[in-house]
């Protein structure tokens, strides 16, 4: 199912939320993003992989946190006041993703999108920003938070 949605995106384009992690520009489809918040207090849960620093209380709901740097194998980073947590959702799965800082919302058209030929990878397509000419990696939300 995730595959279909992704396919659609490379054909239809749409809005994306871009952000930076380890000096690289990434993006989520705006439809996957539910919220952007300051980093709240994180409660450690034992016996979880190290890219999950714990869970947060999001208005009474317990939501797991994913450290994007650790998940993608980048060096650790002292998250500061500019850092954010992007809350994303894919089906029943919901998670807060820790990023260095959030950039912008961009509108992209199919011409800017190049599909990742590797099926079901964490970065589903590569987008060339129309404003900055940056190379943006669109993350596969489902794959990032569940696998």
């Amino acid at each position: 199912m995730a595959e279909e949605v992704k396919q659609d995106f490379s054909q239809t384009g749409g809005q994306i939320l871009t952000f930076i992690s380890d000096e690289k520009v990434y993006a989520f489809k705006i439809t996957d993003v539910t919220d952007i918040i300051e980093i709240p207090e994180i409660t450690f849960i034992p016996r979880t992989p190290d890219y999950i620093p714990g869970v947060i209380n999001l208005r009474g709901k317990v939501v797991p946190v994913i450290d994007l740097r650790r998940k993608l194998g980048s060096p650790d980073f002292e998250y500061d006041a500019k850092s954010c947590m992007i809350l994303v959702e894919s089906g029943v799965y919901q998670a807060g993703v820790l990023v260095d800082r959030v950039n912008d919302v961009e509108n992209v058209i199919p011409a800017q999108i190049a599909q990742n030929p590797v099926k079901d990878s964490t970065e589903s397509c590569f987008i060339t920003s129309s404003a900055t000419k940056d190379r943006i990696s669109l993350l596969n939300t489902r794959k990032l938070i569940k696998d």
């Binding site: 849960i45 016996r47 999950i52 869970v55 317990v62 797991p64 994913i66 919901q94 998670a95």
Partner: peptide, 23 residues
């Protein structure tokens, strides 16, 4: 008691002795 979020469901937390969490 709330169950752990779905993302953590495969991580065998129950087997490790954690039945859920609570706010």
């Amino acid at each position: 008691v709330k169950p752990f979020p779905a993302v953590l469901s495969d991580m065998k937390l129950k087997e490790a002795g954690m039945s859920g969490c609570s706010v």
